[in-house]
């Protein structure tokens, strides 16, 4: 077991593909995407077989359960079959992608198998296993403690302390840092921002396609100064939705990972199992919440002002 219990708030690069740094979360997302596509191919194949044999397989049952459940969920919000059918592909994709990424992060080996790398003074949160003083921020090596006003006879001592601190910081920043190969895709802010942006772009697209010019009036309205101000607030609200959406998912999943790491370090046996159960639940709930909020955003975007 390594001496340092290392938790990084941002995804760490595992290798580079040209200029693009392939981080451990991207690597995990790619694996998860491959698994999801394989599942879709398997379901499609199972459907083809079922047509000839007239027997419904487990995969088909699972896929039907998923599609029917999400269809009913969307229908309960929209109450319009045409809209439901339009929203379905995105909602199915959100749910499956987020759920699989959340749960993949709980698999053994994810976050624990990796390599050691000398850190180049990046801002990191490092949890020390020995003293468990959580969290300890390891600041950049160049940064030093602010000098405090000291008594003349204490100056030499303080200088020594500063020097020692610098030496310690440099030593720590250049000490090998553990970099896991895999990290839950949704525990990376870039992934959650990407998902939140897709959600909001889709909301704007459907808002425009359903309401045409009326949708723009929601943001740019010169009918009265109050409405103009409300429009600006609406515009700001659309951007803040991306942030709140992205941080909600990231925060929940990352917090779960930190919780599991800390609990596993404190009590390695039995106790983490309860928290794993909790995280399985949280992973499903977060996927559900993200999908449900997306449906609500789309529904709100496609309704005129008179419905609000």
């Amino acid at each position: 077991m390594s001496a340092n219990l290392h938790i990084s708030i941002s995804a760490e690069p595992v290798f580079h593909l040209g200029n693009l740094a392939i981080t451990n979360s991207i690597l995990t997302s790619l694996i998860v995407s491959t698994l999801i596509i394989s599942f879709a191919v398997a379901v499609n194949w199972s459907l083809t077989i079922a047509k000839s044999t007239k027997k419904i397989g487990t995969l088909q049952n699972l896929a039907e359960f998923l599609v029917e459940g999400l269809y009913n969920l969307i229908q309960s919000v929209t109450n319009d079959h045409t809209k439901t059918r339009r929203f379905m592909p995105l909602i199915v994709a959100y749910f499956v992608f987020i759920l699989c990424n959340n749960w993949f992060g709980l698999l053994p080996g994810v976050g624990t198998i990796g390599f050691k790398e000398v850190a180049e003074g990046e801002e990191q949160v490092v949890l020390l296993q020995q003293d468990l003083s959580l969290p300890v921020a390891q600041v950049q090596a160049s940064e030093t403690k602010p000098l405090e006003v000291a008594e003349p006879n204490q100056v030499s001592n303080t200088t020594t302390e500063i020097a020692e601190t610098n030496v310690d910081s440099e030593a720590k920043s250049k000490s090998p840092v553990f970099v896991p190969y895999f990290r839950a895709g949704t525990a990376d802010l870039n992934t959650t921002i990407a998902l939140a942006m897709i959600t909001q772009f889709a909301a704007q697209f459907w808002g425009l396609s359903y309401l045409k010019f009326d949708y723009i009036k929601k943001f740019i309205n010169f009918s009265s100064p109050i409405m103009f101000f409300v429009g600006i607030l609406e515009l700001v609200g659309e951007f803040s939705k991306v942030m709140s959406y992205a941080f909600r998912l990231f925060g929940n999943i990352f917090a779960g990972e930190v919780l599991l790491t800390v609990i596993s370090a404190l009590v390695p046996l039995v106790v983490p199992m309860a928290f794993y159960g909790l995280e399985i639940f949280v992973g499903a709930i977060q996927a559900f919440v993200f999908s449900l909020l997306s449906i609500i955003f789309y529904q709100v975007a496609t309704l005129g002002h008179h419905y609000e």
Partner: peptide, 20 residues
Amino acid sequence: QIIFQVINFGVVMGALTYLL
């Protein structure tokens, strides 16, 4: 990385839509 994830999600969505 955001663009990469958007493309990744797009591919997953396309596959799920047309295959599932």
